[in-house]
């Protein structure tokens, strides 16, 4: 069985949006969940967050950044091609309820997973304050979509080329310091950004959630490769998460575990690029 790619577009340098024909997944998907795909028989199983889904048309959108061999290979595919495997929805859906005011913070490609959450929180009747950021304005993704999905949108870039000159967490702190009564903060992005963000928000009387991106194999609780320590206990990100209470997450362990195969990954990219140059691919 193959899963057809219906649309494919580079939305920022090395960041791609892909729409896939996967009606079963689309029908069951909820905000906060992810899929695992495999390009071909020899490929790795790679997890990506569901960035959008349409139950009627049966399509699922993912947004990914070229990181290593698999995502680089994925970036070369185009509409009309097919993926060997596409399984989901995985993970526990985000606990979206009417809470009042919610801040959603997305960094880098982490903006993509924030999008379905913004829609869901808004639909549940919340005031949704979204803060998105990236290194520079060219790398910023989903600005228009986010504006539509949020009550208010704030932008930050590291180099100041758009919006606030600085980090997304600076804006988050300003809002938390204001009179706005915030019930919950959701932070999604690179682990270091989630760690820093959790630290900034911790002193405030507010719930803080992060969505973790541990290395995964099956995504169903069968391998334990995705384990993280939360509140001193071992949890499996793929079934117990991916969302956890940020105050309890051991981010240092998470970051160390993400680096597990760094050597092998670098070699895989080298080999892949060599093959591409020789026209083997």
């Amino acid at each position: 069985m193959a899963y057809r790619i219906l649309e494919k577009e580079e939305i920022a340098p090395s960041v791609h949006r892909m729409v896939i024909d996967a009606p079963d997944v689309a029908k069951a998907a909820k905000a906060g969940q992810f899929i695992i795909l495999r390009i071909d028989e020899r490929g790795e199983r790679v997890p990506l967050t569901i960035a959008d889904f349409e139950k009627e048309t049966g399509t699922v959108t993912v947004i990914f950044q070229e990181m290593g061999k698999t995502t680089k290979q994925l970036a070369k595919l185009s509409a009309g091609d097919a993926l060997e495997d596409f399984v989901g929805p995985l993970g526990t859906p985000a606990d979206v309820r009417k809470l009042g005011t919610v801040i959603l913070v997305g960094g880098g490609v982490g903006v993509a997973p924030v999008y379905p959450q913004a829609k869901a929180y808004k639909e549940a009747g919340n005031k949704v304050l979204t803060i998105i950021g990236s290194r520079n304005k060219d790398l910023l993704i989903l600005e228009d979509e986010m504006r539509k999905a949020s009550s208010e949108l704030y932008i930050a870039t590291d180099d100041g080329s758009k919006g606030h000159h600085g980090f997304v967490t600076d804006i988050m702190k300003q809002i938390l310091d204001s009179d706005e009564k915030v019930a919950r903060v959701v932070i999604i992005g690179p682990p270091i950004m989630m760690k820093v963000g959790a630290g900034v928000a911790s002193p405030y009387d507010v719930e803080i959630l992060v969505s973790l991106n541990s290395i995964m194999v099956d995504g169903t609780g069968m391998c334990g490769g995705c384990r993280v320590t939360v509140d001193g206990k071992t949890k499996f990100t793929c079934v117990d998460g991916p969302e956890f209470d940020a105050r309890q997450v051991n981010f240092v362990e998470l970051m160390n575990r993400l680096a597990m195969y760094r050597g092998e990954e670098a070699k895989a990219v080298e080999k892949y690029e060599e093959e591409c140059r020789c026209g083997l691919n």
Binding site: V217, M222, C223, G224, G225, R227, V228, T234, R257, M260
Partner: peptide
Amino acid sequence: LPRFMGIEGENLNGVYSANEFLT
């Protein structure tokens, strides 16, 4: 669903459940 021992150092890089290793 793999069982772990609950001892110190079990989440270090290079510690696998047999399920993950064999998969």
